[in-house]
């Protein structure tokens, strides 16, 4: 197996309406087993994926929002959220689920996974990646 690669999963679509968010999340969970340097980015309507209190009941479509809470256990610890995309949709950090991971290097202290970033920061992060997955 080659050296560890930096992989970013970019999420641009709302959780429902199309299947990209759900099937994108499935790739992230399977990919976790490969122990790469993984991060996720949420931009455009993709920020809706992380909303608190989602209820898909009336649509008859599975609500997979709780699955994002498992990401920390899969060592997916870096969730970059585009600040401007949030603002454009009238959202703030507190509207999103409180997602955490346990930091091995600091006695498993619980830390927030979501980091708000500017578009400039996101662009730098993307540039650092070996692989970009777009969903």
């Amino acid at each position: 197996m080659a050296a560890i690669k930096k992989m970013m999963y970019i999420n641009r679509t709302a959780p429902h309406g199309t299947v990209y968010a759900l099937e994108g999340l499935e790739v992230v969970l399977i990919g976790a087993a490969f122990e790469q340097d993984v991060s996720m980015a949420f931009m455009d309507d993709g920020v809706f994926q992380l909303l608190k209190g989602q209820d898909a009941g009336d649509t008859g479509i599975k609500n997979f929002a709780p699955t994002y809470r498992a990401l920390g256990d899969y060592d997916v610890q870096k969730l970059y959220v585009d600040k401007v995309s949030l603002q454009e949709r009238g959202l703030v950090l507190e509207d999103l689920q409180h997602l955490t991971y346990e930091d091995e290097d600091e006695d498993y202290a619980e830390k927030p996974s979501i980091r708000l970033v500017s578009r400039q920061e996101l662009s730098v992060l993307m540039d650092q990646q070996d692989v970009l997955f777009n969903f």
Binding site: I30, G31, F34, Q36, V131, L132, F133
Partner: peptide
């Protein structure tokens, strides 16, 4: 086959090119 084949394809290749 499974999604692991996609991750492996990304790791093994110099470039993963996505069409969608």
């Amino acid at each position: 086959s499974g999604l692991g084949q996609l991750i492996e394809a990304a790791i093994e290749a110099d470039r993963l090119v996505e069409f969608g």
